[in-house]
Design a protein around this nucleic acid. Structure first.
Lengths: 198, 198
DNA sequence: ATTTGTCGCTAACGTATGTTAGTTTGTTAT
DNA sequence: ATAACAAACTAACATACGTTAGCGACAAAT
């Protein structure tokens, strides 16, 4: 009988959630079966239910885990006393780092949240909307302070967030540039368009 | 017995494919069932098979329909005798317009191609890779001609393409700006970062 | 050594899915 | 009007899925 191996301070549930992230990322939530997951954990499908309540619970864990980290960072950045462009840059660097180092979870949270069911679904959508609003507010403050080129802030947010989710392709690509190069390139391209033209 | 309504010059298969695009977009390919599709077409599930070979065929049609349009535009733009930034802008405007006016198909092609099966899958992935390479080549030519800020071209392409797929959120949003405003905003943000700083 | 609780197993259930076979209805052409 | 074809229907199939029940095996605590 093959037990789920756990490092110290890592519950079996966390092991399952982590494997689920990998699987959901590569097949999609619907296409990934509990039997697939079981195999990748090294156990029979039914055994998973000793640790989790349902397949959807796995998605909850992933989505809200990610959402909470982003919200917390937003809180932190908002309170700093620095120019708006600096705040934007900090948020972008955070996004990029999350995407690079917690690829699977972030990706799944971004693409598969549709399969959440109420009340989690509405809750998640709400959090997303609020996050974007707060991001846009930062940009708008920067525009009013003439630190940022006058652009439509919601559009900018939309571009930023989706641009970063493109790191997915970077992960897949054969000839990768380094993570730092990637980060700095992205910041250059995204942020340099913000400064007002002289 | 309720026949599938067709306008003149529109085959029943095309009607089905179009409805499939809407359905695949809102539920995802795997989660959308043939019975769902049948209902949205106004017919029994089995009847669909008088017009199509399989569920996957619908995905083929959508993915390659979109891919071919993009490839054709690439061909067209490559041959124009204009500066590189102009080419980039033309491609971006095309992308934006496709995303705005053929939302469902483009979105599905972008997010659900993973569920294609070989040989279509490899074929599609190839086309994507080639398209991106050609896009990057244009940017690199612009950099050599000092028309474009020296940046990592593949990263720029990745940002551009994903940024545009963010129009998905625009479609969903309540307080939409107009399509032209959206287009111009996106071009401003994305293209203005390209010009060399004076 | 015995108890107790955790964890994994086998077996199975009910449901949903893509698809096929065979038949009937409706349309078009002679 | 009738033959011929297209397109819809009903019924059913095999399979895959999420999940539950009940039992046995191992580990930790007494």
């Amino acid at each position: 009988m093959a037990r789920i191996k756990t490092d110290i301070n890592v519950s079996r549930k966390e092991v399952i959630v982590a494997k689920a992230a990998i699987l959901f990322r590569e097949k999609g939530f619907k296409a990934a079966s509990m039997r697939d997951l079981a195999e990748s954990v090294g156990v029979e499908a039914a055994s998973l239910y000793n640790h989790i309540k349902s397949k959807t619970e796995l998605l909850h864990e992933l989505c809200f885990g990610v959402a909470n980290r982003f919200m917390q960072k937003m809180e932190e950045v908002e309170q700093e006393k620095i120019p708006a462009v600096g705040k934007v840059e900090k948020l972008l660097r955070f996004h990029i780092n999350e995407m690079v180092h917690h690829y699977e979870e972030v990706y799944v949270s971004d693409r598969e949240w549709k399969h959440l069911s109420d009340p989690y679904l509405s809750n998640f959508q709400n959090q997303r909307r609020i996050y974007r609003k707060r991001f846009a507010t930062i940009i708008e403050a920067g525009i009013r302070a003439a630190e940022i080129e006058p652009i439509d802030a919601p559009t900018a947010v939309l571009i930023f967030l989706h641009a970063i989710s493109g790191i997915e392709s970077w992960h897949r690509s054969k000839q990768k540039i380094s993570a730092e190069e990637l980060e700095n390139n992205m910041i250059t391209i995204l942020v340099d368009g913000l400064y007002p033209r002289k």
